[in-house]
């Protein structure tokens, strides 16, 4: 994962750089929006971590100019402002995610991975979620590099969850994707498929939570 960090606080930036480097990610650090812009113009960056309060051009301004130039690079905003509205405006301006300072480095890395995963999933056939990988072309599922045998419905369900990570899916959402009009299904069928899928994926970093009355949510805990 190639990351560009735009942060003017040296102490925080060095810690982030050290953490990401130790995890084996390529990370570059700049302390102003202007420098970030020139790097983004030449290099291929997979995710941009952007602080809001920067000397000179602010993080929001950089984000706005990126989006106005149709640059769809995933952007994670870091904000320290007390105003809750900051989070809202960040998402309105086209940020993909935000974190409020102070945050856990682990959380930051996980969020970045989620963004990269989402972006790669659009172009690649191979989706990586922690120790789980899924090839949407060959439908091969691996946990810790070992192939897991899944039934077709389970594969369909897994693919649906992987493309809708961290989002609530209702039972109807899932049933509509898994069964066509001709196939009769009982409400229990979805539940049964899910139970089997969970069993098969034991030991993987993909967690599928059931929220009674609302639906299902898949989350990668890595």
């Amino acid at each position: 994962m190639r990351v560009l960090l735009t942060e003017d606080n040296q102490g925080l930036a060095q810690s982030i750089v050290q953490y990401f480097s130790e995890m084996g990610h390529a990370i570059d650090w700049v302390d102003s929006a202007e420098k970030a812009e020139s790097i983004l113009a030449h290099d291929t960056i997979e995710v941009l971590i952007l602080d809001v309060n920067l000397p000179g051009k602010s993080g929001f301004e950089l984000l706005t100019s990126l989006r106005s130039r149709k640059n769809s690079i995933p952007v994670l905003i870091l904000t320290a402002r007390a105003e809750v509205d900051d989070r809202v405006s960040a998402l309105d301006l086209g940020a993909d995610d935000y974190l409020v300072k102070p945050f856990d480095l682990r959380e930051l890395a996980a969020r970045c991975r989620a963004l990269v995963r989402r972006e790669r999933g659009k172009s690649d056939n191979e989706i990586h979620c922690g120790n789980l990988s899924f090839n949407s072309a060959t439908k091969v599922v691996k946990v810790n590099q070992e192939i897991i045998e899944l039934r077709p419905r389970e594969v369909q369900m897994l693919e649906l969850f992987l493309t809708h990570l961290d989002r609530m899916l209702t039972k109807d959402d899932i049933a509509n994707r898994l069964y066509n009009f001709d196939e009769a299904y009982t409400p229990n069928a979805v539940e049964q498929t899910l139970t089997r899928l969970r069993k098969q994926l034991q030991g993987s970093t993909l967690i599928i939570k059931t929220v009674r009355g609302l639906g299902y949510l898949a989350h990668v805990h890595d």
Binding site: D166, R167, L217, H219, H221
Partner: peptide
């Protein structure tokens, strides 16, 4: 409520807590 619960479920996904919603 759906927004808040979705976010909470995501943040506590690694725990064993079970969330329920009664609409």
């Amino acid at each position: 409520l759906q927004d808040v619960i979705t976010q909470a479920v995501r943040d506590y996904a690694h725990t064993d807590i079970e969330f329920e919603y009664v609409p």
